[in-house]
C-alpha cells in the first residue's frame, strides 16, 4: 500500500546548511531523518531508546539523544552532527583529543561520545575534574571499554579549548561551540 499524498514539511539547519524535507510519516525520529533522509550517517543508532547515547547531536547547541526526538517537533531547529564539527581537514579539538588519547576502539559510539563531550564542555559543568567528566559522559555507553581514553580526551580538549593563548581550531561558530 502506498503513502498518502500529504506529508510533513520541515526545515532544519544542519551543520550550518538549511535542509528542507517532506516526511511521509510523523513518526520519523530526528536520528532517522539525519541518517536515512539526509545521508548523515555519522550519528549512530545503538538502542533507539535513549539508553546508549550513540545518536547524540547538538540541538540548538544542547546535546540530545536524536533517537528520542521526533523530527517534526524540531522544525526550524539548528542541528550539529559529527559531520559538522571539523573545519575542513582541521579536526575540532575534541576530535583531535580522541585520536591522541585513543578514546575509542570500534568507533561506533565515538560520534556520540564526541558530540556529548562538546556539549559537556559547553555546559561548563565538569571543568577539569575527572570525576565530573566521568559523570557527565555517562550517558554514552562504550562497550569496548575505552572510557579511560575518553575521559583523558575530554580533559585534554577542555584544557586546549580553555587555554587563553591558543585559538581553538575547528568549527566553533555559534552552532557548534
Amino acid at each position: 500500500m502506498s503513502f498518502p499524498e500529504t506529508g510533513f514539511p520541515i526545515t532544519l539547519t544542519v551543520n550550518g546548511v538549511s535542509r528542507s524535507l517532506v516526511l511521509e510519516d510523523a513518526r520519523v525520529t530526528l536520528l532517522d531523518a539525519l541518517r536515512e533522509r539526509l545521508d548523515l550517517t555519522g550519528s549512530k543508532k545503538g538502542c533507539d531508546r535513549g539508553q546508549c547515547g550513540a545518536c547524540t547531536v547538538l540541538l540548538d547547541g544542547v546535546r540530545i539523544n536524536a533517537c528520542l526526538a521526533l523530527a517534526v517537533s524540531h522544525d526550524g531547529a539548528s542541528i550539529t552532527t559529527i559531520e559538522g564539527l571539523a573545519d575542513g581537514d582541521v579536526l575540532h579539538p575534541v576530535q583531535a583529543a580522541f585520536v591522541d588519547h585513543d578514546g575509542y576502539q570500534c568507533g561506533f559510539c565515538t560520534p556520540g561520545q564526541i558530540m556529548s563531550a562538546v556539549g559537556l564542555i559547553r555546559e561548563g559543568q565538569a571543568g577539569d575534574d575527572p570525576e565530573r567528566v566521568r559523570e557527565g559522559m555517562s550517558g554514552n555507553l562504550c562497550r569496548c571499554g575505552a572510557y579511560a581514553g575518553i575521559t583523558e580526551a575530554v580533559l585534554a580538549a577542555h584544557a586546549a579549548m580553555n587555554a587563553p593563548d591558543v585559538l581553538p581550531g575547528g568549527n566553533l561558530s555559534e552552532d557548534a561551540a
Binding site: T41, L85, L91, Q95, V99, G107
Partner: peptide
C-alpha cells in the same frame, strides 16, 4: 602510533 582509522572514526566518515 595513533590509529590510521582515527580521523575517519572521529569525523563520522567511517561507514558501518
Amino acid at each position: 602510533l595513533t590509529r590510521r582509522d582515527g580521523p575517519a572514526k572521529v569525523t563520522g566518515a567511517a561507514r558501518y
